[in-house]
Design a protein around this nucleic acid. Structure first.
Length: 282
DNA sequence: ACTATATCCTGTATGC
DNA sequence: TGCATACAGGATATAG
């Protein structure tokens, strides 16, 4: 599932291929992925031709592709969104939803999305910082992140630490996979109250999250199947480096105890029952 | 103001 | 073999 490292892999692929290229045609093959474009699918398709891409940007899991005119194409991969760059005439990827053709002879841009939790929309004036992104907290790779303010914010929250990590208004970019990996590295149980953690513990947790996402980025991202791929359609290799996520009944790499899977927020949490003990009173 | 939960969506895997 | 169900989990609207 695309979280910060996977979205960054995609951003780099788009940044290498799109700047300076002018859109000629847009085909919306399914309306749902452009549902956040309030004026509708036909308006989306009509509004983009003639615009020229600048360098793709990212905050957390939100991507945006600025145009040279000051607007931006917003993109979120959701659960299963993919950007692909393929030669015109090359067969469309499965569940292809939107196709962008260009004025030059270079590759087409295709947006595919099986589950359609992701989407594309136009953000007027959004080239620098789209309004949709301004509401999201900075991520752990943002040079302007105020780490001390983040630690203070986390330690004020009356909620379990994993819920806080997943809250994109607190810190962006972390999803279920990297939350579980960061908690494993920091030896914390997901239900530990955030407001019972000391400053140093929170710093250690954030450093663990940053480290695991750095490792994942170096490996080209995490994927278990064809649902996450880069713009060339190939998968990352970090899936085989995970310590807790998806490893139910497999030994904890630290102590050997079998990893357990538990229901959490209508999904699953994975943890080591020995290294990550439940908080007192839970 | 803040936190918790239901919802959307479909291909794949599993169980009966 | 075929059908039904569980599961994956992003953001967001709504409820508490």
């Amino acid at each position: 599932m695309p979280e910060l490292p996977e979205v960054e892999v995609v951003r780099r692929g788009l940044a290498a291929a799109l700047p300076g290229r002018r859109i000629a045609t847009v085909s919306v093959l399914h309306p749902r992925p452009v549902r956040r474009h309030a004026a509708g699918p036909d308006d989306f398709a009509a509004a983009l031709p003639g615009r020229t891409f600048a360098e793709a940007r990212r905050r957390g899991k939100f991507l945006w592709l600025p145009f040279t005119d000051g607007d931006a194409l917003m993109a979120h991969l959701g659960m299963s969104g993919q950007f692909r760059l393929d030669e015109p005439g090359h067969p469309l990827p499965p569940q292809c939803r939107v196709v962008f053709g260009f004025a030059d002879a270079g590759p087409e841009l295709r947006f595919a999305d099986q589950r359609m939790f992701g989407g594309l929309w136009l953000s007027p004036g959004g080239a620098e910082l789209p309004a949709e992104v301004a509401r999201i907290a900075r991520d752990l790779f943002d040079p302007d992140l105020d780490l001390e303010a983040l630690v203070t914010d986390i330690r004020r929250r009356h909620s379990g630490i994993k819920r806080v990590l997943l809250n994109q208004q607190v810190v962006s970019g972390i999803g279920n996979i990297y939350a579980d990996e960061a908690l494993w590295r920091a030896r914390l149980h997901y239900d530990t109250p955030a407001d019972r953690l000391g400053r140093v513990r929170v710093l250690e947790l954030l450093e663990a999250a940053r480290a695991v996402m750095t490792d994942a980025l170096d490996a080209g991202g995490t994927s278990f199947d064809a649902l996450y791929v880069n713009v060339n359609g190939s998968s990352g290799y970090f899936g085989r480096s995970l310590s807790a996520y998806g490893r139910e009944d497999l030994p904890c790499p630290r102590c050997g105890r079998p990893i357990v899977r538990e229901p959490f927020m209508n999904r699953s949490s994975y943890r080591c029952p020995a290294c990550q003990r439940p908080p007192r009173g839970a």
